[in-house]
Design a protein around this nucleic acid. Structure first.
Lengths: 212, 212
DNA sequence: CAGCCGTCTTGACGGTTGTCCAAATTATTT
DNA sequence: AAATAATTTGGACAACCGTCAAGACGGCTG
C-alpha cells in the first residue's frame, strides 16, 4: 500500500516535472524569438541583453532567468530559427514532378529567402564566423551546417533523379558551392546591389544541369 | 626671382609633405600589423583598442593618433593582410609546367595556409560577416572579395590552359565554391578536426578536373 | 638657444555592458 | 486560506569600452 502510494507519487512528480520543463522551454523559445528581432538588426557583437529587452515586451532580468548566459541565448535563437530553415525547400522537393518544376520552385524560394529574410541569414553567417573564435558555438554551428548540407543534398538528388542521373559531386562540395553563392549574393543584396538576386538566380539556373 | 623662389619653396613643401605622408602610412601599417596579432586571436567584437595596445609595444593613444576610428584600424589591418594573400598562389601559377604540377603546388599552398594562417583567415571571415551589418566595411570587403575571385580565376584559367580547355563555370561560381570549401575546412580545422585538411585536399583534387 | 611641430603618453570622462540580487508579484500546492 | 514555490521586476554593481585632451618628449629650424 505504502509502496503503491510512493510509486504513484513518483509518477506524478515525474509528470509534473516534465510539464514544467516543457513550459520552461516554451518560454525560452518565446524569448528567443523576441531576441531574434534585435539580433538580426544589429548582429551578435553589437547586441546587448538590455537592447534585446527594450525592443521586446520583456525586461532584461527575465532573459537572465531563462538563459544562463548571453551565449546560451544566442545559441537557442539560431538553433530555433535554423530548425525552420532546413525544411524550407522540402515541399518543393516532394511535389515537383519535373526538373523544370523543381528548378523554378527552388529558385523562387531562394529569391524570396534572400529578399525577405536577409537579416536572419546574416545573423547565421555572423554566428558561424564567431564559432571560429568561440568554442562554445562550434557544436551547434557544425550541427546546423550538417543539416543544411543535407537539405541541399535532398534537392540535388531529387533533381538528378528526375533526369535519371546522379549528382556529379559530393554533398560537401555542393553545399559549399550553394552556400558560397548565397553568402556572396546576400552581402551584395544588403549593399543595395539590385542585381544581386537576379545574378544569383542566373548562376544557379546555369549550374544545376551541370552538376546533376 | 620672387616667383622662382616661391616655386622652389612649393616643390620642397610638396616633397616634404609626400615624405611625411609616406612615413605616416608606414607607421599605420606597422601598427596594423601589431593589431593583427590580437585581432586574429580574439576576433573583431572581442578586441578592444586597449587590448591591442597591451599585446603590443605601443600605447593605446598611438592607435587613436594614427587611426580616426576603430573601424578605420580594422579596415587597414585586413586590407594590408589580404593584399599579401592575393599573390599567394601566383608563383605556382606562373611556374607550373603541367596540370599535375599546378595541382600539387596549389594543394600544398592551400594546406599550408589552412594550417599556418588560420587565425588571420578567420578574421577575414569575421570582417566579411560584419560587413553585412556595418556599411562602413562593405566597400573594402567587396573589393577584397573581387580580388580573391580574380586570384582563383587565374589559377583556373591556367589549369584549363594546361589541358587545352576552358573553365566550365563563371568566376563567381568558382570563387563561391572554393571559398565555401575553405571556410568549412577552416571551421573544422579550428575545431581540432584532424581530417579537415586532408578532406579539403581530396575534395579539391577531385573537383579540379571536373570544372576545367 | 628658443620656439615650433610632429609624435607619443597618460589619465580621466561618460556611457554601456553582463551579472547579480532583493523585493514584488503570480502561480501552485497543502 | 495559508504557505510555499516559481516567476518577474528593476535597480545596483564593478568592469570595460571608445574617445578625448592636456601635457611631455625629442628633433628640427630659424
Amino acid at each position: 500500500m505504502a509502496r503503491q502510494a510512493t510509486r504513484a507519487a513518483q509518477r506524478v512528480a515525474v509528470a509534473t516535472e516534465a510539464l514544467r520543463d516543457e513550459k520552461f522551454n516554451a518560454r525560452r523559445v518565446e524569448l528567443a524569438e523576441a531576441a531574434l528581432e534585435t539580433l538580426g538588426e544589429l548582429g551578435f557583437a553589437r547586441t546587448s541583453l538590455r537592447e534585446i529587452a527594450q525592443n521586446s515586451a520583456f525586461t532584461h532580468g527575465v532573459f537572465h532567468y531563462y538563459f544562463s548566459d548571453k551565449l546560451d541565448l544566442i545559441c537557442c535563437c539560431v538553433r530555433h530559427y535554423k530548425a525552420k530553415c532546413v525544411t524550407r525547400y522540402d515541399e518543393v522537393v516532394t511535389t515537383a514532378k519535373s526538373r523544370d518544376e523543381l528548378t523554378e520552385g527552388f529558385l523562387a524560394k531562394l529569391a524570396a529567402t534572400l529578399r525577405d529574410e536577409a537579416r536572419m541569414h546574416r545573423l547565421w553567417y555572423d554566428l558561424r564566423s564567431q564559432a571560429m573564435f568561440e568554442p562554445a558555438f562550434r557544436k551547434d554551428v557544425l550541427e546546423i551546417d550538417k543539416s543544411l548540407e543535407a537539405m541541399i543534398w535532398r534537392i540535388a538528388t531529387r533533381y538528378a533523379e528526375l533526369g535519371n542521373k546522379k549528382p556529379a559531386s559530393s554533398p560537401a562540395a555542393l553545399y559549399a558551392l550553394f552556400d558560397g553563392l548565397f553568402q556572396s549574393a546576400l552581402l551584395r543584396h544588403l549593399a543595395n546591389d539590385e542585381k544581386a538576386v537576379p545574378d544569383l538566380l542566373d548562376e544557379v539556373r546555369r549550374l544545376l544541369p551541370t552538376i546533376c
